[in-house]
């Protein structure tokens, strides 16, 4: 069923250096890498990024198949980006005259450049979610954002909401799958008919799903209160985050990569 095909935001359990990195470090490094991808001024500058991505993927033990699966939902945007740039960008050196449009060398380079940028962004981001359990990720995010508390930013509440939401995504998908099956057993049809018929067919799925989500939310709130949850004030943690040697090495590697990317952009 299509419900199982969602890779983005899915964790791939494995024992690797990448998995063991401090989540705060991983989040910051992801931001730096995204910056690196955006400052890469030409195609040559992508070479070190691609090499780095390949190395990290190898170290993480995440199968390449899983990484590629993350791009699949974006294929239409990718094609659109590529085609639009290719046909509508004006350049100076014509390569091919199709009659209705002229493809130029500059347009081709830009099309490749933008599509590559998109692919790299998605791959690098999914590498973070594939190697970091959602709970650890939100924990890291909370710690990174906690200095903002001085301006009354609700870092703890945000992180708690996120981790609860993430925790319940698989549960809700499972629930949706079950309800869908139960209604199919009563002859419901989710797959055929026109748009309106299909939208109507969702009612027997959505009503029970909302009812169960609200029931779960109520139960969870109760259970949290019963265990004396009262917000982030004075809460200690089970996992105390601490930077280790591998985290410093990772930081150094990414810094070097950023320098290399900038250099490549300048030299060419």
């Amino acid at each position: 069923m299509a419900l199982n095909d969602i890779t983005l935001g899915q964790y791939y359990p494995a024992d690797s250096v990448v998995h063991r990195l401090d989540p705060r470090v991983k989040i910051v490094l992801l931001i730096v890498l995204i910056v690196a991808i955006f400052v890469a001024g030409n195609l040559l500058a992508y070479a070190p990024v691609i090499a780095f991505l390949a190395l990290v993927t190898y170290l993480s033990k995440v199968p390449v198949k899983m990484m590629v699966k993350g791009i699949k939902p974006l294929r239409f945007i990718l094609i659109l980006t590529f085609v639009l740039n290719l046909f509508f960008l004006q350049g100076e050196t014509p390569l091919l005259n199709l009659g209705f449009a002229v493809i130029t060398k500059e347009a081709l380079i830009t099309a490749v450049h933008y599509s590559l940028r998109l692919v790299l962004l998605v791959m690098i981001s999914s590498l973070l979610t594939l190697t970091t359990p959602p709970i650890v990720l939100t924990d890291g995010l909370e710690r990174l954002l906690s200095p903002l508390r001085v301006i009354h930013f609700p870092a703890h509440e945000m992180a708690m909401m996120m981790s609860i939401a993430l925790r319940f995504i698989p549960t809700l998908l499972e629930e949706a799958d079950k309800i869908m099956k139960a209604q199919t057993a009563r002859g419901a049809d989710f797959e055929s008919g026109n748009l309106i018929a299909r939208a109507k067919a969702m009612v027997p799925l959505l009503v029970p799903l909302f009812v169960s989500a609200f029931r779960r939310a109520g139960d969870l709130a109760m259970a949290m209160e019963a265990r004396c949850y009262h917000g982030g004030e004075g809460r200690t943690r089970l996992r105390v985050l601490k930077c280790e040697r591998r985290d410093y090495i990772a930081c150094a590697a990414v810094a070097a990569l950023l320098a290399l990317v900038i250099l490549c952009g300048k030299v060419y």
Binding site: E175, Q183, T184, A185, V203, P204
Partner: peptide, 19 residues
Amino acid sequence: KEVRQKVGLVFQYPEHQLF
């Protein structure tokens, strides 16, 4: 549909499917 009609399946906690 014929199979679905001839074989009725009552899931666990079927009350969760009411809508």
